[in-house]
Write a protein that binds this DNA or RNA. Structure first.
Lengths: 158, 158
DNA sequence: CATTGATACATGCAAATGCATCTAGTTCGG
DNA sequence: CCGAACTAGATGCATTTGCATGTATCAATG
């Protein structure tokens, strides 16, 4: 806790997070202002996307909640909206009566694909020119490592 | 536009962004749930922080708006709240009567420092164990490069 | 310097969000 | 089996957000 470089280690971590955060803001701002998200807000698309990547095609609400930066109640209501538009379906979880399984409808799957294609192009246009392929691979590796480490951590506040 | 690996380049960019985004969500979720932000929401702290880093101590609202993921109107009202709490001050820009310069009050500066100290510790606790110093330096470099590239880009939609 | 268009920020209003709480289903100790 | 503690998700309500628009200032053009 008191090595010669303890404070510089703390500073480096803070600067790294700050830079990661600002780059996320910059990219996200561009992406969400694009025409891909005129028909559906990014956060709602993100739920459709998450469902589309899931092998079983179904996810519990709390699993989805881990992936998006929304409170439980906000996600519940976001899903209300998606359901009202006929893009997803709620089902009671078979093994746990409290749980809700969410799945894409045909229409939801189609909309996800349509937006997804455009979205992926937008991403490539932003990230492609910014970083070499090698740099992208490294950024992918580092952020994945960071996410994995953070996901498996206790708060430890105090 | 049609090299053999065009589609895999697109996929890599998309996966890289996805990973960056999810890691940001995971870290942010931990950070904002900590006790550091009981007294002030993260977004409001972020404005205080941004002002505290600024050499002149003053920033235009539109400059701040570039750094945070908020609409212009939401930032305007967020600043209302900060002003009402006596943490910042609005001044008309001397060289441009339309503009508003924002600066920290003494009280705002103190609160920023108090929260900031705790916040930086939390960050170090999350990022420090996740990545080596070398990896953090590389992540810092890559995200900074990405941000700089994206900031200087036209939308190019269509 | 009048006019037209653009830029910076504020505001009305509807929609989204989060906190606290509620309901229902599950788990565990006896 | 029963009841207490726990978990998943829904809901009431106040706050926050964004879109559209308003107001004031600036810049460009004739």
């Amino acid at each position: 806790m008191s090595s010669p470089s303890a404070s510089s280690a703390v500073r480096l971590a803070a600067e790294t997070w700050e830079s990661l955060f600002r780059s996320q803001v910059a990219v996200m701002r561009k992406l969400q202002s694009g025409p891909a998200f005129k028909s559906l807000p990014v956060k709602e698309y993100d739920v459709l996307f998450t469902l589309s990547r899931c092998p079983s095609g179904q996810l519990r609400l709390n699993e989805i909640n881990d992936k998006v930066l929304l409170s439980q109640s906000s996600l519940s209501r976001l899903v209300d909206r998606l359901e009202k538009r006929g893009l997803v379906e709620r089902t009671t979880a078979p093994d746990d009566g409290r749980g809700v399984l969410l799945s894409l409808t045909e229409s939801g799957s189609e909309l996800q694909k349509t937006i997804g294609r455009e979205h992926v192009r937008d991403i490539a246009q932003l990230v492609g020119p910014a970083l070499t392929v090698e740099e992208q691979r490294e950024l992918l590796r580092l952020t994945e490592k960071l996410r994995a480490s953070v996901a498996g951590h206790q708060p430890t506040h105090g």
